[in-house]
Amino acid sequence: MKNKVLMGLAAIAMVAFLSSCGKVPQAKVDATNTAIAAAQTAEAAVYVPAEFAAVQDSMKAINAAIEVQKSKLFKKFGPIELKLDETLAAANKVATDAVAKKEEVKKETEALMTEIKGVIEENGTLMKKAPRGKEGAAVLEQMKTEMATIEASVVEAQGSYDKGAYMDALNKVKAAKERAVAINTELKDAIAKVKR
């Protein structure tokens, strides 16, 4: 009788043991979530959006997989741990890539800022040499207004740059440069026409 009771208890203990042997790898889950948050802080959504979305999707799939295991009688978190390792590595890479891309855009913006300042300066010099006269005065007035708008746009771009919004700054300074170069060409053409 004693043996029977012991065997029954052993069977119940075995079922209980098997059903609770898997534990959620919480430390890894937390580490991966922290890495994703760090990537977000590094503006990965702006500078490497596709890669960042892929990492977020992976984490969603992992969270679902964890719930799947939690729903089962016999839990198995081994494959999830492997997936977490991969996602953690990917999240760290995305953060590093975002920082690198941001630096690249920052450098590009700085280079364009220097370039446009040169063009603005040259335009100022050319403006003095440009033909005047009745019609020329109105044309120069329009050019002066456009130069003022370009300079205001460069100031705005500098503001975005100072705030760390390099992508916005780059877009603004690119547009300003296009306009400044167009005026530069126009001025050079007008001066060349007079010389001929």
């Binding site: 007035e141 003022a148 300003a176």
Partner: peptide
């Protein structure tokens, strides 16, 4: 003139 100039700048930004 100022409005035309701002319009041209916005058009350029939109193109980019």
């Amino acid at each position: 003139r100022s409005r035309i100039s701002r319009g041209k700048m916005l058009l350029e930004e939109a193109r980019i």
